[in-house]
Amino acid sequence: MHVLGRLLDPQLVEQLSRLSLSGRRVVDGAAVGQHKSPVKGASIEFRQHRAYVPGDEPRRVDWRLLARSDRVFVKEYDEETNLRATTFLDASGSMAYGAPARKFDYATRLSAALGYLMLAHSESAGLAIAGSDSNTWLAPSTASDQLTRMVHLLERAVPRGATVLGRALGHIADRLGRRSLVIVISDCLLPASELLNGLGRLVHDRHEVVLVRLLHEDEINFPFQSWVRFSGTEGEAAHMVEAPQVRRKYIERFERHERQLHEGCSTLGIETVRLETSLPLIDAVTAVIRRRRG
């Protein structure tokens, strides 16, 4: 646990210990856990019959039904499995905004907390960090050193470059394979359509997706006064404005973007959580967990 201590303070860890994750949907899992697995097989809970096809195990044939109806069916059962959760962290340049703590710092701590929470409940936890240059991928696992690997990755991650979130989400979907819980942590400062495309790919692959939008309060309220020279963190051209004069328009655009995002996510069946960096981390974790519990 000393590795986790580099990102999370002991008090937060203690608070996390009292929380638990529960899947709103059935997820695939490699280990027996407290979540139902969508994989039908020999398990304790009967699900349905289906016609026998060559290759089916003979032991799954329902012999009693064969005797009564002279037709060969095999039994299918719901299998209890563990939760596979992957935290997807946006490491674009815009996540570097904020002082003294940047959004990205907050996001790394939130990712670590979620990872810890899952692993503490014998769930599989994975991590994906999407930067402009390269993507970092840690496959979900319940291994004992999984948390250590996650923390190392998070510590090394640097937010920079343009947001390539849509494309990165597609790459993650390719790697995820079995259905998982995907927690996307991002400021979502990219066109809504681009982001929704990436999220749609995950949903299409039947992953459960929770979108955590992490923002600094300046990005919400735009409180700047007088003249401000905004330099883009993702390579955009600098913009000199008299802040009070553009505030109203900024907020209007911000809200329109958020509305598009929210509507798109609703259509996709994606839960969204908006967090501000001023929010205590335990409250942020709770909000994510609660949202996922439905």
Binding site: G93, S94, M95, A96, Y97, K103, D187, L189, L190, P191, E219, F224, S226, W227, V228, R229, F230, S231, G232, T233, E234, E236, H239, M240, V241, E242, Q245, V246, K249, Y250, R253, F254, H257
Partner: peptide
């Protein structure tokens, strides 16, 4: 006033109009 501006590294550039009305 223009000369004494505040420099800000800003992420949400997409909400700043390129040519404000």
């Amino acid at each position: 006033g223009r000369a004494r501006y505040t420099p800000v590294q800003w992420g949400a550039m997409m909400f700043l109009a390129r040519k404000p009305q």
